[in-house]
């Protein structure tokens, strides 16, 4: 186990722990904040995996925009500040079973499948902006354009949905 591994594992533990807290905490706003922690840990993880552009985009968009949106949503729907008792639905035990089953299956399969796989992290620079940019605008340009149209549609849709005087 190299230092890289140890750091990555620590970041992973933080991410997973924060995620568990997101789904179990009794306080709505705290859930959003734990989500920030999780996203931040994940960004750190990306950095460890030499995907630095992705890490920054993660911080920018997820932590910067998505969580802020979620907080806006929480405020606009008059979410209770502080503890609220009923944030877990009646479904929770079935949900727990399904989640544990999912976790079990996935972890077992993946561990058994990739026991001997080692990713080479000594080749630096593959996650930088330049190689990724070239890749996006040369090879992945069509999906890129389609995505921009998707964004436009989402924008228009959100505005239309939120208007009061329809």
């Amino acid at each position: 186990m190299t230092t890289l591994d140890v750091v990555f594992v620590l970041l992973g533990v933080v991410a997973v722990g924060a995620a568990v807290l997101v789904v179990t905490t009794r306080q709505l706003v705290h859930a959003a904040l734990w989500l920030v922690v999780s996203f931040g840990a994940l960004a750190g993880g990306y950095l460890m995996l030499t995907a630095e552009f992705v890490a920054w985009v993660q911080v920018l968009i997820y932590v910067g925009a998505v969580v802020v949106l979620l907080l806006f949503g929480i405020m606009l729907t008059r979410a209770p500040i502080g503890r609220s008792a009923d944030l877990d639905s009646g479904n929770r035990w079935a949900a727990l079973a399904v989640a544990l089953a999912t976790a079990g299956v996935l972890v077992t399969v993946l561990v058994r499948g990739f026991r001997t796989a080692y990713a080479p992290l000594d080749v630096a620079g593959q996650g930088a902006a330049k190689p990724l940019g070239e890749s996006v605008f040369r090879i992945w340009v069509l999906p890129f354009e389609v995505l921009s149209v998707l964004l436009l549609a989402a924008l228009v849709g959100a505005i239309v949905l939120s208007r009061r005087e329809i």
């Binding site: 639905s89 479904n91 079935a94 949900a95 079973a97 399904v98 089953a101 999912t102 299956v105 077992t108 399969v109």
Partner: peptide
């Protein structure tokens, strides 16, 4: 919808388990 999704995901997990 959470009930429906639970059923769906439980089924998927079972199928994956069975396949494995």
């Amino acid at each position: 919808p959470q009930t429906y999704l639970t059923g769906l995901l439980a089924g998927v997990a079972l199928i994956a388990l069975a396949v494995v």
